[in-house]
Design a protein around this nucleic acid. Structure first.
Lengths: 206, 206
DNA sequence: CTGGAGATCCACCGAACGGTGGAGGCGCGA
DNA sequence: TCGCGCCTCCACCGTTCGGTGGATCTCCAG
C-alpha cells in the first residue's frame, strides 16, 4: 500500500485528488497539507511514501518544501504537481530533489501511474516537461542567465553594439564579449541575433 | 514660473537636476519622486507644469506613469529623460503622451530649453531620437514587413547567417542583405539582433 | 581555506555584417 | 501604359563580431 500525502493550498484540488485516489486499491491518501511546512510535518508523522506537492503555495513554497523534505524524510518521494510547465520552476524543483514533475491537466490514470512509479523510485515527467528538461540538461548550468548576462542581452536586444553596451554598464568592451560568449553557450546559439530570439522565447527579455 | 516635478529612482540624478534648475529664474523644482506612482501623486498635488520622467524605474515604469499622468493631469507635460535612446522605448513613451524625449547626456542648457519648450507645449527630442522617430513615423506602411522579409527575419532569429538564410530560401546572399536593409529601415533598427527583438515585440516572430 | 561561480579584462584573427549606391525583372492597379 | 512595390542581384569598404585561450578579483559555501 502506497501512503500518499497531498500538499496543495487549494482545498478543492485536495478534494479532487482524494477522490481520484479513492478508486485506487494500492494507494491511500493518509494526509493533506495546505502549505510546505505543514506538508513536511505530515509526511514525517505519517511515514509517507509519496508526497504530491504543488509548487505555488503561500508560505514555504514547493521547491523549498521539497528540499527540506528530502533532508528530513529521505524515504519520501516528492512528486511535483503544478499548473504550469513554467521554465523557471522545473529545474529548481528537480534540483531540490523531486522525483517527478506533472502538470495538473494530467488524467487521473496518468496520475496514479505516476504515483506508483514514484513509489518505486522511478522518475516520471510530463511530456512537455521532459522535452524542456532535455534542452536544459544537455548543457550543465544552462537555462539560467546571471543578472549581468540578462542586462547585456537586453542591451543587445535594444540595439546596442558591444561598445555601447559596455558604455551603458560602465565596463569594458571585452567584458561584454565575454558575457556574450557565456550567453551563447547557455542558450545554445552562435550569434547575438538568435540569442535575442532565445531570450524572448524563454521570457528573459521584454 | 514653470513648476517642475522630477521623477527618477536615483537620488543622485534628482540632486543633479535640482542643482541644474537652481540657476533658472523661470523654473522651480516643486517636487521629486522615486517611482512612477509617486510621481503622479506629486504632479497632481503640486500642479506641475512639466514632469521630468525617467523611463527605467522600479515599480511603475516611466511609460506607464506617463500614460496614467496624461489621464489624471492633462495639463502636465511629460518630458522623458533617460539614459539610452533604445529603439524600444521611444515609441511607447511618445504614444503614452510624452511631449519630449531627452537623453541624460544632454547639457544643462539644452535641458532648460527643453523644459521651457515643453511648458509651451512644444515638442523637443534629442537629435538621435528624432532621427529614429522619423524612421518610424514618416514611412507609410511602416511596421509591415513583406512575407519575404518576415521569412528572412525568422531565419535570422533562428540563428542563420546571411549565407545560410540565402541557401534556405534558394536566393543569393546579396538578396538577404538587401532584405535585411529594408527590414532595418522599417523597424527602425541598425542590426539584426535588435531587428529580431523588434520582431518579437511586434509579434512578427515566434 | 580552498574551490567554484561570477564579473572583469586582454590580444589576436578571420569571418560576417552593415552602409551605400546602384541595377534589372515581374506583376498589379491607376 | 506607366508607375510602384517587391524581389532579385552586384561591388566595395570599414566596422563589428565571434572564437580562442587565457588572466585577475571578489564573494560565498563547503
Amino acid at each position: 500500500m502506497i501512503r500518499l500525502v497531498v500538499v496543495d493550498d487549494h482545498p478543492i484540488v485536495r478534494g479532487g485528488l482524494r477522490d481520484t485516489f479513492a478508486d485506487a486499491e494500492d494507494i491511500v491518501v493518509v494526509g493533506e497539507a495546505g502549505d510546505g511546512a505543514e506538508g513536511i510535518e505530515r509526511a514525517e508523522q505519517l511515514a509517507a511514501d509519496v508526497v504530491l506537492m504543488d509548487l505555488r503555495m503561500p508560505g514555504m513554497d514547493g521547491v523549498a518544501a521539497t528540499a527540506a523534505l528530502r533532508e528530513r524524510v529521505p524515504s519520501a518521494r516528492v512528486l511535483i504537481l503544478t499548473t504550469f510547465d513554467s521554465e523557471s520552476d522545473v529545474l529548481p524543483a528537480i534540483e531540490a530533489g523531486a522525483i517527478g514533475y506533472l502538470l495538473k491537466d494530467a488524467l487521473p490514470d496518468e496520475l496514479m501511474r505516476a504515483v506508483r512509479a514514484a513509489a518505486r523510485g522511478e522518475s516520471v515527467l510530463a511530456p512537455s516537461v521532459t522535452q524542456h528538461l532535455m534542452g536544459q540538461v544537455r548543457r550543465p548550468g544552462a537555462g539560467t542567465l546571471t543578472d549581468r548576462e540578462k542586462q547585456v542581452l537586453q542591451l543587445v536586444a535594444n540595439g546596442s553594439s558591444n561598445r555601447e553596451a559596455a558604455a551603458a554598464l560602465f565596463i569594458g568592451e571585452a567584458s561584454i564579449k565575454t558575457h556574450l560568449q557565456h550567453i551563447y553557450g547557455k542558450l545554445g546559439v552562435r550569434d547575438r541575433a538568435s540569442a535575442v530570439a532565445e531570450g524572448y522565447r524563454r521570457r528573459l527579455l521584454t
